[in-house]
Computed example of a mutant assay.
Amino acid sequence: MRIAEREVVEGVAAGVPFVAVPPGEEAASAGVVAGWHLMDAPASERAMAAALPMAELTAWRVYFGLPLSGTRLPEGGYDEVFRRASEDAVLNIYAPVTAQAADEFPAAVAELRERLGADGPLGVFGGSAGAAVALEVLARGDAPIAAGAVVSPVVQLAPLIAANERRFAVTYSWSERSRAAAARLDFVARAAELTAPLLLVVGSDDDIAIREPAAALAARLGDRAELVTVESMAHELPPGTPDAVRVDAAFSEWFARRLRG
């Protein structure tokens, strides 16, 4: 069923919770930009919609909920997520969340395009762990995607695990399975699979585990990518902050250029 009025829509599509915000102005054939939130702030689909509204974009903005986050926290909430992460952050959190969200995407976005009457160009975006999902979706190529944009992106998982070891004073025990999962989530090595134009936004104050892989991916992609560094920005994007406003402007300008026609 198509949406009769241009209003924010919340619900579930193909089992995936979402918030969908209509185009800033009427469009005969509106496109869609769909993305995933961070596991840090903003850590839900509603919070991501508040942080990166892209209000003037002539496209539907769709914010999907990540598995194990937001409205899909497991029984026990964040305590249970932290427990699973302490047992094996790669195999219990990062790898399954990325794989599940990417697996869900084709059916969820197809259902939403029909429901919203949005048959224009498609873009994807994400932040941190949600950025890894966007990169995985781009690499798989299950749907024609005009462009992608990521912020504070997890471009390589192994450096992020090392950063978490430093941050939490723990030691992660790598196994053959977790090394294979981390190799799968190494988008510098998989750069040839990323054929759509890609915007990478990083904060100058973010960890080197985020900044260096993003720069390496941009260099590998060449003219298929743009790298933007936001001065004094760290990793998180709380809604309403100057950092969120700057990232929102960068995403809006990028998608406005790339989704035309």
Rank of each mutant, 00 (worst) to 15 (best):
Y94A: 04
V230F: 10
G126R: 08
A196S: 13
Q100F: 07
A234P: 07
L157K: 03
A234H: 06
A132P: 02
A196N: 07
V170M: 15
A216V: 15
A169I: 14
L199I: 08
D103H: 03
R166F: 15
A183S: 12
A180C: 11
L122P: 03
F105D: 11
A118D: 10
R220W: 07
L122A: 10
R166C: 02
E104W: 11
P153Y: 00
R115V: 12
A162W: 00
G141W: 05
L116F: 06
A182W: 04
V188S: 13
L199F: 03
F105Y: 09
R220Y: 04
V154C: 07
A169R: 08
A110H: 11
A225R: 10
P159Y: 12
S232C: 01
A99K: 11
E236V: 15
E176L: 14
T229S: 15
A180V: 00
A129H: 11
H235I: 04
G126L: 07
H235A: 13
A101D: 03
G203N: 11
I145A: 08
L135W: 01
L157T: 06
A189S: 15
P213I: 04
A182R: 00
D206I: 05
D206T: 12
A169T: 10
E104Q: 08
L200C: 09
A181G: 07
P159V: 04
L135Q: 01
G141T: 05
Y94P: 00
P106K: 00
G130P: 07
P144M: 11
P144T: 07
I210L: 15
E193I: 01
A139D: 09
G203I: 13
G126M: 04
A183K: 05
A191V: 09
Q156R: 12
V201D: 05
D207I: 01
Q156A: 07
V97P: 01
A196C: 09
A101P: 03
D205H: 06
E136S: 10
A110M: 14
A180I: 05
A147S: 14
G120R: 02
R167S: 10
L198P: 12
A163F: 14
A189W: 03
